[in-house]
Design a protein around this nucleic acid. Structure first.
Length: 594
RNA sequence: GGUUGCAUAGCUCAACUGGAUAGAGCAGCUGCCUUCUAAGCAGCAGGUUCGGGGUUCGAGUCCCUGUGCAAUCACCA
């Protein structure tokens, strides 16, 4: 748009002034710092070899050429080697007009590529906690951002529903459950099972202590405690299809799924496909065979199978145990193939914490060695841990922040703030309840998504329930505010189209806002390229901030010029649309009133 | 110990990928609601970008080095 036109013009300027051809992509244009006049800045330093002049002189030369030979440059100034360009008011009005007329502004056309996004991936032995929330929100938002960039997206959840850790809670329930059910306990199924997982741990710890006191080595005690042996035995039974064990497993997992479904529903998160590890854990053994045949893997004396990745700068890694059973890596290799078979993706994203960086590095290297063409499209969206002010979350020390509790707290806080402000007293109850959810969830999602995924972050409970400043509700508020303007504009039957030649001189707030609006597609593409919802989060905040500045300084309905009035309504309308769209990419709804 | 990542205002985070005097929010202080929603706006104050070298017109950003923190290095997942 404007930026491309400037690049093109500068390229022409170089051709005419310096007899030098510059491709438009070489010419980088950046936003002008706000202490200088102008919107776009061209840095001339890199081209002094070509211009053969001083930075100031070259800048002036180019500026003068642009002012003379284009119709959209109002003025320019050169500070050191920075050429700051001011565009005419009319060109801004035309830009807004074009964008407003473009129904699909902001979303990109189908690019014909498929991408799979795997996230959430909970264990069925405890409820979701704060760490899962960051994972879920990131995965969901990334999927939405990729879809808006033209990908066909499939969201999948690979549930870890089997293994020794699952048997632990089963065992504890078998011993101490007394037929308790979620109904009888008045508790969500996932929380009930989580309780038995804790009970197992207590029992296990007590046994270890007893063994150590009777003189056993602590390390040995951990392996010899009766309950861990029983759990392992139970896993054997499960793998052999023992009816009673499988029935118990199905019953308890069923409860957990019901609990999870409720939490996902509350969070507004859906999946296209649910994979269960109980169906995938045997996958990958054929790949081990394939790897041996291709000479990618090798067998050690005891029969275990390994891959040598020293050439890739990594170690040797086990891919199959000596007893022929699968390890995590075996399974993940198989899952890659299965996913690609089910949905022939160009990219496959794994939203998994950064403690598994090495695992995925190895996995991707193996898939490449096995000659999988899709291996280059595998991407580990590695995110940092969420810390509490008290330090790391530890389930054993009870410092874990439970997802359901936190969500409920957010809803309560939203209700409290809203009641205090007393702006929606005429709203009916179900509508009000809906609003509290939208605000509470918006605050929480925004809080977790505004930080660069790669970085570890601190979750401060006091700050998370703050609804002012750089928060979701601030942005939601801006949307509600604009909605009020648009409602009034509609009731006054203000015309919606304007003549760009007649809007006259613009306020800098208006220029800033339109400029920001033109930056939306860039933010959207950047967010997809970096797999980073935080880029979108930051953009929407900046947009809302700019609108509030405009709102404060420019009274909309006091305007007598009909075209300018329509122009301001159009700015408002466009801003609201992009706030709504941008927030929806974060999985956050925006209200019409609040 | 090896590997990987991180270190920016009192606190939580940005900084368009090497550009100008490093920006926001929170916390603190000042103003602004008889005119479109004050969950807002405007202003003040707050910085040796962990230390030390280097690369160049220019470094928070790239390279080397030291320090501190985290993750990982299982025939666990």
């Amino acid at each position: 748009m404007l930026e491309q036109r400037i690049q093109k013009a500068i390229s022409q300027a170089f051709a005419e002034l310096f007899d030098h051809s510059l491709s438009e992509t070489e010419i980088s244009i950046q936003p002008t710092r706000k202490e200088f006049a102008g919107t776009y800045t061209f840095v001339v330093f890199p081209f002094l070899k070509v211009t053969k002049g001083k930075p100031e002189d070259s800048g002036n030369q180019i500026g003068e050429w642009l002012a003379k030979n284009t119709d959209f440059i109002k003025g320019f100034n050169v500070v050191k080697g920075f050429l700051n360009l001011e565009l005419t008011d009319v060109s801004w009005a035309i830009v807004l007009q074009d964008i407003s007329g473009d129904e699909s502004y902001g979303s990109l056309e189908d690019n014909g590529q498929k991408v799979m996004v795997e996230f959430s991936s909970p264990n069925t032995n405890k409820p979701l906690h704060l760490g899962h929330l960051r994972n879920n929100f990131l995965g969901d938002s990334t999927a939405r951002i990729l879809a808006a960039n033209g990908y066909e997206v499939k969201k999948v959840n690979l549930v870890n529903d089997r293994g020794v850790h699952i048997c632990k809670s089963m065992l504890a329930y078998q011993k101490m459950g007394n037929g308790e059910t979620p109904e009888s306990a008045g508790m969500k199924g996932d929380h009930l099972i989580g309780r038995y997982y804790v009970k197992f741990d207590q029992m296990y710890k007590a046994e270890i202590n007893a063994l150590v006191e009777s003189g056993m080595d602590p390390e040995l005690a951990k392996k010899e405690a009766p309950s861990i042996l029983e759990a392992q035995e139970m896993l054997q039974k499960w793998e052999n299809g023992d009816k009673e064990t499988v029935a118990l497993w199905e019953k308890m997992n069923g409860w957990v799924y019901q609990g999870f479904d409720q939490t996902y529903e509350t969070m507004g998160i859906k999946f296209d496909t649910m994979y269960k590890e109980s169906n995938t854990y045997l996958l990958g053994k054929e790949l081990v065979e394939e790897g041996l045949q291709k000479g990618v893997f090798f067998k050690k004396e005891n029969g275990s199978v390994w891959v040598d990745l020293t050439e890739e700068g990594m170690d040797e890694k086990l891919v199959l145990r000596a007893d022929g059973t699968a390890v995590y890596m075996t399974q993940d290799m198989g899952t890659c193939d299965m996913k690609h078979k089910n949905f022939p993706f160009d990219k496959s994203v794994f939203v998994v914490g950064n403690e598994q960086d090495y695992h995925f590095k190895v996995l991707f290297a193996i898939m490449k060695k096995l000659g999988r063409a899709y291996a280059d499209g595998l991407y580990h969206l590695s995110y940092g841990m969420v810390d509490l002010p008290s330090g790391k979350m530890k389930s054993r020390e009870g410092t874990v922040v439970d997802a359901d509790d936190l969500l409920q707290e957010m809803f309560n806080t939203a209700e409290k703030h809203t009641r205090e402000l007393g702006k929606i007293e005429d709203m009916d109850d179900s509508e009000a309840q809906k609003l509290y959810k939208v605000l509470g969830l918006g605050a929480l999602k925004y809080f977790l998504l505004k930080v660069d995924p790669k970085k570890r972050m601190l979750f401060n409970p006091q700050e998370s329930i703050e609804f002012q400043g750089h928060t979701g509700p601030f942005i939601q508020y801006t949307h509600a505010r604009i909605s009020a303007i648009l409602r009034r504009g509609k009731s006054l039957e203000i015309q919606t189209s304007f003549d760009s030649d007649k809007v006259g001189e613009l306020n800098t707030r208006e220029v800033d806002l339109i400029f920001k609006i033109t930056e939306y597609p860039k933010a959207l593409q950047e967010a997809a390229k970096e797999y980073s919802p935080s880029i979108m989060a930051q953009y929407v905040y900046d947009l809302a901030k700019d609108y509030n500045g405009f709102y404060q300084e420019v009274p909309i309905f006091n305007e007598e010029n009909k075209d300018k009035l329509a122009f301001r309504i159009a700015i408002s309308n466009m801003t609201a649309k992009l706030i709504k769209e941008g927030m929806s990419l974060l999985g956050i709804e925006v209200p019409e009133r609040m």
